Amino acid sequence: MKVLTLGPAGTYSHRAASAVADDEDIEFTESVTAIVESIAEGAYDRGVVPVENSIEGSVTESMDAFAEHDVAVVKEIITPIRHALLAQGEDFDTVASHAQALAQCRGYLEEHYPDAELEAVASTARGVQRAREDPAVAGIGHPANADNGQSLEVLAEDIQDRSSNATRFLVVAPVSERSEAGSKTSFIVYPSEDRPGLLLEMLEPFADRDINLTRVESRPSGERLGDYVFHIDIAAGLYEERTQEALSDVEDITADGWVRRLGSYDSETVLY
């Protein structure tokens, strides 16, 4: 099974992907959009993409990619995030990491390194790579990326601002593998109109059938100002009659737009 995720090796996405395939079957890119597009085109069997962090919220690039490319969601992976400060020594003036990791450690950095320049890079592993190449740079990433102290020291561990910090990843597959089995379902709704009470109408079919909405979020459609796509997750499977009925109602309400059923899936929590 060929799996594509965010790289280089050592990212949290890589660790999540390790729950799907062996390391020799995992390849890397530095774009979430490229992952989803590659799966839609059939170039890989699976893609692992971050979609939500408990501190910083949704990964908007993932949401936009799901709206642009038709894929199936087949699994959810929850990974607690442990950030460490990694450097060749104490003397550095720049901290490099993914923008979300920098934000998740904002309090620690402001308290201990208020004068350090913060450099946003493509991934936590890329920041660690910068630290490995330049003694004036520290990286933020998983403590295991220190390589047993051979090139980098772990200056501090668990520097994230909240101990509950966790990231949600979705495993995507070609549309042909979309399933109705699972305890959760994700779908996207594009109403193609804007009128008072529309969102309420779209959500009432789930409340009427006692279906819990676990996430409702809007993103610009890109078509025109004020036009939105809605990403919705529910705690119910597509195999359930109540889910099918609710989605049928939503499709009637948004007849001028579209509803994309990404699929049903189960969740796994992975500790590293």
Rank of each mutant, 00 (worst) to 15 (best):
R162H: 14
E68C: 07
E76Q: 13
D194A: 15
A146K: 06
G10M: 07
R106M: 09
D210M: 05
D227L: 12
V137M: 14
D22A: 13
P191F: 02
V73G: 04
T243M: 09
G226D: 02
V270H: 07
I55S: 14
Y12L: 15
T243V: 12
I234N: 05
E30S: 11
D25P: 02
E56Y: 08
Y228A: 14
E76R: 03
G89R: 08
I211G: 06
G222N: 03
G197Q: 00
S38P: 01
A9K: 14
S186M: 15
Y12R: 03
S13G: 07
D158F: 10
R168C: 11
A17T: 01
T79W: 03
I35F: 08
G139S: 08
L198S: 04
D91P: 03
S218Q: 12
N212L: 07
C105H: 06
V250F: 13
E240K: 01
L238S: 06
S176E: 07
I35P: 00
I77K: 04
A125M: 08
V270I: 13
A146I: 00
A101V: 04
F169A: 12
S54F: 05
H69G: 03
N165H: 09
K2M: 12
E153I: 01
I159W: 10
V71T: 02
E61F: 05
S248Y: 11
R261I: 10
L247P: 00
S248C: 07
Y44M: 05
F206Q: 00
D227A: 12
A136G: 09
I253F: 09
A72V: 00
I81T: 05
H14C: 04
D266P: 00
F28Y: 11
A125H: 06
V121T: 03
E193T: 04
S38T: 00
E117N: 11
V121D: 06
E241A: 10
K184E: 13
D194I: 10
T254I: 08
S97L: 07
P8C: 13
E119M: 15
E90F: 12
P8D: 04
L102R: 02
R132V: 02
A255V: 06
S18H: 10
V137R: 10
A17G: 03
E24V: 01
V59K: 03
T124H: 13
W258H: 10
E217N: 11
L225T: 05
E153A: 15
E52K: 11
